[in-house]
């Protein structure tokens, strides 16, 4: 653990230890959130209210076993909300990445009328957010009948976004020689893309997919607006908390929190390395 310190000057060692100590405090505080949630999910409702910081007197597993029965919001049971979450996060993230990568590939490797414009537009769009369009967007969704429907996921087929820039940069730097070789062998453009180019972008695709998935798995704001009748788990939890007026089950609330947190935690611990190393913006000046 302290190997990295060996070759350093004493002042530097001191600095590193100090930094590490500060980091430790933050790290512990983050772990405490999960620990507190877990602990609360194993207490009774009354214990959570009266002694929010004490350990459970008896482990109360009923918060988990009764969760399917108690935790339901706007006609959506736990299973239904889980389905909504998976649908909007997995299908949504996949559609978005699928559309974006093809779009970026096409713009970086092919010339067609307007292909250079697209890059400029995306660059402006990502650096210049337009404010106050929430009302117009809500009306649009309403008029298209995309409120409270699974088809809402279609709105995620976006290609004009930051990830476009990542993919474009990636493909720009990717040599075209393989493609030419494949073309010699008679491959068409679809085959070149799917058999030659796409496989090379797999790590980038995967890590961007994962970040998009995570963002929408945890997303509450747009779901609360557009899909109140098809709540995903985070919105279900938020609503359950608000509607707790009529139910005294904080234990179930925190049990649900644990259930939402676990898939995200597992994915990140498993793929931490890929995520932290495969994306870069702005490049390196060497």
């Amino acid at each position: 653990m302290f190997k990295s310190l060996k070759r350093k000057a004493p002042a530097e060692k001191l600095l590193y230890c100090f930094v590490s100590l500060v980091f430790l405090l933050f790290a512990l505080s983050y772990i405490y959130i999960i620990a507190w949630t877990l602990m609360s999910s194993l207490k009774t409702h009354t214990e959570i209210v009266l002694d929010p910081f004490s350990l459970p007197k008896v482990l109360n597993w009923s918060s988990y076993s009764e969760l399917p029965e108690v935790f339901y919001v706007n006609n959506n049971g736990f299973g239904q909300m889980l389905f909504n979450s998976v649908w909007f996060s997995v299908v949504g993230a996949f559609l978005q990445q699928f559309v974006t990568i093809a779009f970026a590939y096409c713009c970086s490797k092919y010339k067609f009328p307007g292909s250079e414009w697209i890059y400029t537009i995306v660059l402006i769009m990502t650096t210049l957010p337009i404010y106050g369009t929430g009302g117009a967007t809500y009306r649009l969704y309403h008029e298209l009948g995309l409120i409270n429907t699974y088809a809402h996921v279609l709105a995620s087929c976006a290609g004009f976004n930051l990830h476009f820039l990542y993919y474009r940069a990636y493909f720009k730097n990717l040599s075209w020689t393989y493609a030419e070789a494949a073309m010699m062998d008679g491959a068409n453009h679809f085959q070149i893309y799917s058999k030659v180019m796409l496989p090379q972008a797999k790590p980038l695709f995967f890590s961007l997919f994962l970040t998009t998935w995570l963002a929408s798995w945890n997303n509450w704001s747009s779901v609360l607006l557009y899909l109140p009748k098809l709540p995903t788990l985070p919105v279900g939890i938020q609503q359950f908390n608000v509607e707790m007026i009529y139910k005294a089950r904080l234990d179930v609330l925190f049990a649900a929190c644990m259930i939402v947190a676990i898939p995200a935690l597992v994915m990140f611990i498993a793929f931490n390395k890929v995520l932290t190393t495969s994306v870069s913006v702005g490049g390196i000046k060497g």
């Binding site: 983050y30 999960i34 945890n218 939890i237 947190a261 990140f268």
Partner: peptide, 13 residues
């Protein structure tokens, strides 16, 4: 790993 927690855990929680 731990420093990812704030972005992994959902804001509602």
């Amino acid at each position: 790993i731990v420093f990812f927690l704030p972005s992994i855990l959902f804001a509602v929680c």
